[in-house]
């Protein structure tokens, strides 16, 4: 008989269950990250988990890595500092859709442009969960939120396209329904030397699900199951068949030297080597 393999990566002094609502997808993403780290055999003393503010950003509290819980939207900025100070660390940034794309939008695009070596796991639940269900930059147009009782009038961001356009080396999307695929994508992202984004579509049954009458956690995950198209299949389908669905898979995978590597060359040059 064996005990849950993820337990050895949990912080021993914390009380469980975690803070997230019943059926929240963030816990599933946490499991996927832990499995990816174990699969790659990374030493937990060489890991740094950096987060900002929000539901998703509670994760470093529960994972037994070096961790940093920072100001709202600034997780990527702090992570840049951590990586430049100690380039040996594997830096994972845990962030939500509002944290990364609204409050920290500038940090996100500029870290991607600089190609700072970090893995950004962006948990997209399409709403600000912790503060009471305000609409976020990824709330689809027409969907309800506590600040948009008749539906939002704003168009939503596509984080993967944004990261690719800004210069990231890896951009992928997975869903919590397909936790095995999500684990695979995070494993690929962790192995990249550069700015790697994994967007994890994670249901918020408490606010998004209730305000948009999408039902409980099971119904929201069932919706994910029925409305997910792989990127390779989506390329062959007419656009109207892909509209409104979640396209998953690897959108962008490139090889570009990372920031710390180039910075080391600058240091060598300045020293006259």
């Amino acid at each position: 008989m064996k005990i849950h393999p993820a337990y050895e990566m949990l912080r021993p002094d914390k009380n469980f269950p975690n803070v997230w609502c019943p059926g929240c997808g963030h816990g599933i993403v946490q499991g996927a990250i832990i499995r990816a780290v174990q699969k790659l055999g990374l030493d937990r003393d060489e890991m740094a988990m950096v987060s900002g503010i929000g539901c998703s950003s509670r994760m470093p509290v529960y994972c037994d890595f070096n961790s940093l819980h920072t100001a709202h939207g600034r997780a990527i900025a702090f992570a840049t500092g951590v990586k430049l100070h100690n380039p040996k660390l594997h830096v994972i940034v845990i962030t939500g859709d509002g944290d990364a794309l609204a409050i920290g939008g500038n940090h996100f695009i500029h870290a991607a442009r600089r190609n700072v070596e970090m893995t950004v796991v962006l948990m997209n639940n399409m709403i600000y969960g912790m503060t009471g269900g305000q609409y976020s930059p990824t709330t689809p147009i027409g969907k309800r939120a506590s600040t948009a009782p008749y539906g939002t009038a704003e168009r939503d961001f596509d984080p993967c396209s944004l990261a690719k356009a800004a210069g990231a080396v890896f951009a992928a999307r997975g869903t919590v329904y397909n936790a095995a695929e999500l684990e695979k994508l995070i494993t690929q992202a962790l192995a990249k030397k550069g700015f790697a984004l994994v967007e994890a579509v994670s249901p918020c049954p408490t606010l998004y699900g209730r305000l948009n009458r999408e039902g409980n956690a099971v119904k929201m995950m069932q919706w994910q199951k029925e409305n997910t198209v792989n990127v390779k299949a989506a390329e062959k389908l007419p656009p109207e068949k892909v509209r409104g669905k979640i396209v998953t898979g690897v959108f962008h995978d490139a090889e570009t030297p990372g920031y710390t590597e180039i910075y080391d060359r600058v240091i060598a040059k300045a020293r006259g080597a």
Binding site: M1, K2, I3, P17, G23, G27, G31
Partner: peptide
């Protein structure tokens, strides 16, 4: 069940 449990509360314990 183990992969999808948000609370790491369920797992396959048999080898």
């Amino acid at each position: 069940c183990e992969l999808r449990c948000p609370d790491l509360a369920i797992f396959v314990c048999e080898e």
